[in-house]
Design a protein around this nucleic acid. Structure first.
Lengths: 251, 251
DNA sequence: CGCGACTTTGAGTCTCATCAAGTTCGGTGG
DNA sequence: CCACCGAACTTGATGAGACTCAAAGTCGCG
């Protein structure tokens, strides 16, 4: 049974009441799980492919990227453990980006065909998926806001704050320290700067006693000050769930 | 009857077969239309408000923006006639941006409450809304790709190409000429540059014989070359609709 | 031990922001 | 019909932030 997928999806919400029986009903329609182990560098999907399933990232990090003709690269999204990948290709049915594992990890696929069954059977789950999909859009919008009219220092600081907040949210870390498995080139391609400047910017943040990075371990020395520098307001990461509204349609 | 909203939504797809009876069934549940006339500068919603309805822009242009503490502004989305506004606030239930009319225009509201009924009644419509919401996300991602590692000239050219393509798509214009009702300051806040530099960049594009702008009328002199300069590939604007997949769940 | 990937540091350059002063143009009121 | 006003735009000068190229340093891993 595909409990794994549903745990991942529902864990993000504070919903308990009406959920249990709904999930139970859904589980009947779902195919067997197939947890797959992937290595760092393994491809999740490639540009141009047909998209036939969602991917739930059970553990490990991944990213999606777009390659320009000149060979340069733009990392679009960073995926952390617990994330649902590929929602935005459900409608179009094909991949516009490449997605690659940053670390080793376990993934679980959910075919679109079972998704569509859900639209039929469970308005609740549909609404949840809607919420998650929109959440991604909010993150993209926030990134956009950050990318323009913000200095390199602010952008890097913001990205670190965002990763940290997301890891705290899902319980992947409990302290101001975590493994950030992106190279400086990856960060550069995420934040739209050169790798050289990422290095300099890290030095600057370190000199100010805000963060420390050794190999791929990142230590936040002064979280409050870092958030202040980044002008980071993590509220956009919270999925707000208007339970009253949706529960009306439930019954 | 709320035919207006549904026309706007469905007009974007090449779907004819299974649609008619489904739409007919939906129309029963929808409240009366209320087409409202708005003037340029009128607010559609404000940051922090509760979001209780979608807005369909029947005519006129609008934008959504985020204001920073320092007073500067980031335009996030530009809305053209026919667009469905506010999809990404359905889940969260509150507005994170300000939305303002750029020109006079007519709008039509669709309360969330009727949306949620749709999740129950019509998987087809649900999937369509999913597609439209994802379409917005694709546009945001594309913007992101453009905003980084692209020169001011390319960004401006790309924005012009995008507007032009969207207007052609919905039949708002048929020629390489249209009214672009954004000031250079608006464009600057959209593209993350200074108003002064927008002016210079326009001059540059004009000098190269690509576009011409007089008052708010924009004339594209050499569309092909403009697209080449912008590295514009309009495929991301097409909503691709995998009818087979969804029709499986239909019956 | 040494290779290769990643990072750091330095020097020179360019794009674009900022500040400031003018210009165009439609609208308004005398 | 003209003078003036304000919003939008243009043009010039200056400087800061970030890019590029290049070379050296660090570190894990085979």
């Amino acid at each position: 049974m595909n409990r794994i997928v549903f745990e991942s999806i529902f864990r993000r919400f504070d919903i308990h009441r009406t959920l249990e029986q709904e999930v139970a009903a859904l589980l009947e329609h779902l195919p067997e799980d197939e947890l797959r182990h992937l290595k760092a560098g393994d491809s999740l999907w490639q540009e141009g492919e047909n998209a036939s399933s969602l991917i739930v990232l059970r553990s490990g990090w991944a990213y999606s990227a777009h390659y320009h003709k000149d060979g340069s690269r733009q990392l679009l999204e960073t995926y952390l453990p617990g994330d649902v990948l590929g929602l935005c290709q459900v409608a179009s049915g094909n991949r516009r980006t490449n997605a690659v594992m940053l670390t080793d990890g376990w993934v679980c696929e959910l075919p679109h065909s079972s998704l569509l069954g859900m639209f039929n059977d469970s308005p609740m789950t549909t609404a949840l998926l809607f919420a998650i999909a929109n959440q991604r859009q909010v993150m993209l919008a926030e990134r956009q806001i950050m990318m323009t009219h913000r200095s390199a220092k602010q952008r890097l600081a913001h990205f670190i704050c965002e990763c940290h907040a997301r890891l705290l949210e899902t319980g992947e870390t409990y302290r101001d320290e975590f493994l950030l498995p992106l190279t400086q080139q990856d960060l550069a391609d995420t934040l739209g700067m050169s790798a050289v400047h990422v290095s300099r910017t890290f030095s600057q943040l370190a000199a100010e006693g805000l963060v420390q990075r050794r190999l791929f371990q990142l230590i936040i020395l002064d979280a409050d000050k870092l958030r202040e520098v980044a002008a980071f307001d993590g509220r956009y990461l919270k999925i707000q769930w208007n339970e009253e509204d949706f529960s009306i349609t439930e019954q």
